[in-house]
């Protein structure tokens, strides 16, 4: 088919702009790897398992940050999962039509609040509340668990996990809601007609039907928790330690980059921080790719 020069020109221009995305990705991957080379060459694989982070002696290991990132995100998931599922069931099945849109909107608004405001609220409202009301109780009654040992400081792993859980609830809840909504009414009615209770319909028909999508939504939420920076930086205590206690401060990959990047002086220090960024990039990629694969199978959302 004959095309005019001007039509080809528009195609050419649009494809060039689209290619910027490709160039950007290549640039990002290249710069992250290139910037990490110094640290990779110096520490090799030991970087991942070394728990010392000492800018003065120029010894760097990512272990405490990997630990902090993983554990805080897992705590977030443990807390967020039941609540998100509850909200999703509420929004797709239980809520009266009248209030459904407004509750939906409010849950989505929760996702729109900037991270820094979660951090501010976590630091000045949630952490003191944990310190005064929650942590002493946990320490008093569950003292035999190593999870609840130590002084109640407010800020620490528990606060970090909690603030992350609040931030990923809207993500998991809204996507799960959308996926539950795609299950045809036909199937639900078939279940009800067999004399199932509504919960039995949910658990035996709706959830199995939507399983891969719901798992995708959960992984997406987890991925978001892993990469979250400001809110958790403000409440997790920022100390590179590995402790079993949820009361003790910890540190995440994102937080240490946020706190130390502009102050890092030695080349090796900067390189180690960039390697942390590379690690975070790789971890996020893996979880997001997995989540997208599962969610897209349900054809709900990109």
């Amino acid at each position: 088919m004959k095309r005019r020069i001007s039509d080809r020109l528009l195609k050419l221009i649009s494809i060039s702009f689209a290619s910027i995305i490709l160039i950007l990705i290549i640039g990002i991957v290249y710069e992250l790897i290139d910037g990490s080379m110094l640290s990779i060459n110096r520490f090799g694989w030991r970087f991942l398992v070394t728990s010392t982070w000492d800018p003065v002696k120029n010894v760097f290991g990512a272990m405490p940050f990997i630990f902090g990132t993983m554990v805080s995100s897992i705590i977030a998931l443990i807390i967020a999962l039941p609540i998100s599922m509850g909200i999703a069931i509420f929004l797709s099945e239980l809520a009266p039509q009248k209030i459904r849109p407004s509750v939906s909107l409010m849950i989505e608004m929760l996702a729109a609040i900037p991270s820094i405001i979660y951090g501010l609220w976590g630091l000045f409202v949630m952490a003191p509340f944990l310190q005064i009301h929650v942590e002493p109780l946990l320490g008093k009654y569950l003292w035999f668990l190593p999870l609840f040992k130590g002084a109640p400081l407010g800020i620490g792993m528990l606060a970090g996990g909690l603030i992350l859980s609040i931030m990923i609830i809207p993500t998991i809840a809204s996507i799960t809601r959308d996926i539950l909504n795609t299950v045809p009414t036909l199937y639900k009615e078939a279940g009800l007609a067999l004399g199932m209770t509504r919960w039995e319909v949910m658990s035996k028909i709706v959830f199995p039907h939507a399983r891969s999508g719901v798992i995708g939504a959960i992984i997406l939420g987890f991925g978001r928790a892993l990469g979250e920076t400001m809110a958790i930086t403000m409440v997790i205590g920022n100390a590179p330690m590995i402790s079993a206690s949820l009361f003790s401060p910890s540190y995440t990959l994102a937080s240490v980059i946020a706190n130390e990047f502009s102050e890092a002086v030695s080349q090796l220090y900067i390189s180690s921080l960039i390697e942390l960024a590379l690690l975070l990039f790789i971890i996020s990629m893996i979880f997001n790719a997995l989540a997208r694969l599962l969610v897209r199978r349900e054809k709900v959302l990109q």
Partner: peptide
């Protein structure tokens, strides 16, 4: 899906 802090780096 790149974490925003990585974007900063």
């Amino acid at each position: 899906s790149i974490p925003s802090i990585v974007t900063g780096v």
